[in-house]
């Protein structure tokens, strides 16, 4: 039963990815950009969801690893002359190697404190890297044209490459998450958040499991940071280590969509993009509105939009059935 379930969800994922891969051939430039943003948003949200919703690791310092990937990619390509595609891949071990000791340090704190301490760590990373003259200090630095050209000669080519890369990354994130959660260890991992003793009884070492997965998430975030910087074409401490973009909004996306579900971050990300586009004329108002929405969800249905939607559909269907029965 579970095997079939796993296979079918992986099949759905593969189909969706294949369909979306046709995007650059069919869509206009702004739609492509739009979707690229959405892929990145969902990928980052999914990683936060894995940590907070399944493993019980609440971090508000995820922007540290995105920024680290960005700066690492810049250092490799611009300072050491490494090939950009190789540099993209190398962002992964860089992220893992920094995330692992970070986790072991912060894991000495209880859940609640972990969150804020991870933020302190992100600040430290930003302040240290942001002050190095090699990276242009506080103002940041741009990529050399020849690096950018490696990803496509014209703007359209580059946008398409970026689209495919981000889609691929989303596929990697979603695929590995599905495989992990449905694996034999996955059931025990799911228990980590609510019932650590049950996870231990199932043969899981909580600290080791969390450390390894936190570290892998750090690596993936670093790759995502490197991919994202290809669209922005420059690095800066405030932009690359943006608390708002990579942590605040991500948490809202997961919370609004539904923490601890695979579909939650997807629903949340779509709701977020719709929200942003509708209210973007009002400046910071849309952020405040997101905050209000998140508070509302937490107060009235902490399981998020996914559950609210499911319930609405159910009651609508029940009403229709009721009407049909009455007629």
């Amino acid at each position: 039963m579970t095997q079939i379930h796993v296979r079918s969800s992986l099949l759905v994922l593969a189909l969706a990815l294949a369909l979306l891969a046709l995007g650059p051939l069919l869509l206009g430039r702004s739609e492509i950009r739009y979707l690229t943003d959405l892929f990145v948003l969902i990928a980052v949200a999914q990683l936060w969801n894995l940590l907070a919703g399944y493993l019980g690791i609440v971090s508000i310092g995820q922007h540290a690893f995105v920024g680290l990937g960005t700066y690492g990619f810049f250092a490799l390509t611009q300072l050491f002359g490494v090939h950009p595609f190789l540099s993209l891949a190398l962002a992964f071990p860089i992220g893992c190697l920094v995330a692992l000791p970070s986790f072991l340090l912060l894991a000495r704190l209880r859940l609640a404190y972990f969150a804020i301490a991870s933020w302190v760590l992100a600040e430290v990373l930003m302040l240290v890297l942001g002050q190095r003259p090699e990276f242009g200090g506080g103002t940041g630095s741009s990529f050399a044209t020849e690096t950018i050209r490696m990803f496509g000669a014209g703007v359209n080519d580059r946008i398409a490459t970026s689209y495919w890369l981000c889609l691929g990354m989303l596929g990697v994130v979603m695929g590995s998450m599905l495989l992990l959660l449905t694996s034999r260890a996955g059931l025990a991992i799911r228990a980590l958040r609510d019932d650590e003793t049950a996870a231990v009884a199932a043969g899981i070492n909580p600290l080791l499991t969390r450390a390894v997965l936190f570290s892998l998430c750090g690596g993936m975030l670093a790759v995502i940071g490197a991919l994202d910087t290809l669209q922005k074409l420059r690095i800066s401490p405030a932009g690359s280590f943006s608390l708002q973009d990579w942590t605040v909004m991500i948490i809202f996306v997961v919370v609004i969509g539904g923490l601890g579900t695979v579909s939650g971050p997807i629903v949340g990300a779509i709701a977020f993009v719709v929200f942003r586009e509708t209210l973007s004329d009002f400046g910071p108002l849309y952020l405040a509105a997101m905050g209000v929405l998140a508070i509302g969800v937490m107060l009235f249905e902490p399981r998020g939009l996914v559950v609210i939607l499911a319930r609405t559909v159910k009651s609508l269907r029940a009403r229709r059935n009721g009407l049909a029965g009455g007629a």
């Binding site: 508000i60 923490l259 405040a288 905050g291 508070i295 937490m298 902490p302």
Partner: peptide
């Protein structure tokens, strides 16, 4: 779930900042 009040506070932080 300690996460819930924390996320509510998080929402308020963003509302206060942007307000």
């Amino acid at each position: 779930d300690p996460l819930v009040p924390m996320l509510v506070a998080f929402g308020f932080a963003v509302v206060i900042q942007n307000g």
